[in-house]
Amino acid sequence: MFVSVSILTLLAVTAIAIARMRDLWAAVMFTGIFSFLGASWMLILDAPDVAFTEAAVGAGISTFLMLGTLALAGKKEKPTTASPIVPLLVVGITGAALVYGTLDMPHFGDPAAPVQTRIEPGFVEKSQHDMHGLPNVVTALLASYRGYDTLGETAVIFTAGIAVLMILRRDPEDCDHRVTQKSASTEKKGRSS
């Protein structure tokens, strides 16, 4: 309980710090910390696979990508002159509506919640029979029961990779550094990028 509450409080504090920060570099670093705190809480909530992914993706790759973007696009955020009243109002109303919505939610960890009771028998029991004793139910669910989902998702990653290639690559050899280097050395002039 204590660990859970302190992690949640830290998450909230980090989120506020990110919102108030002008220095983008620091904000990106705090985003990494935020992801890591989120991952720790997921570990407490018995989702090691998600925590693992969040730590590797959110705190690792995503932080790196944002730092790379900062190196290319500038580190400072321009101070805004617009008043924050309207956004705060919008956020406040939306938040109040969502909190009102949570009042009907099943309580935390409730074994009688619809999430736990609707699929009968649960995937844990079913996978023991179907998967011939594959220990990690999450993997079984991901790759077998929801195989179509994961295929579509792999296709999304594929598409995103191709999209990044098309946006950032100027000519077919551009992402291959060895080729550009060779041509640069033969032409005896630096690349103008």
Partner: peptide, 27 residues
């Protein structure tokens, strides 16, 4: 499951590495 996860692993590795190449190639 082994084959499917293997495919996923290859794609994710390649896409992430390619994104890195593209960002770094711009810098």
């Amino acid at each position: 499951i082994f084959l499917v996860e293997f495919g996923v692993g290859i794609t994710v590795t390649a896409v992430m590495t390619m994104i890195f190449y593209c960002f770094a190639g711009r810098s």
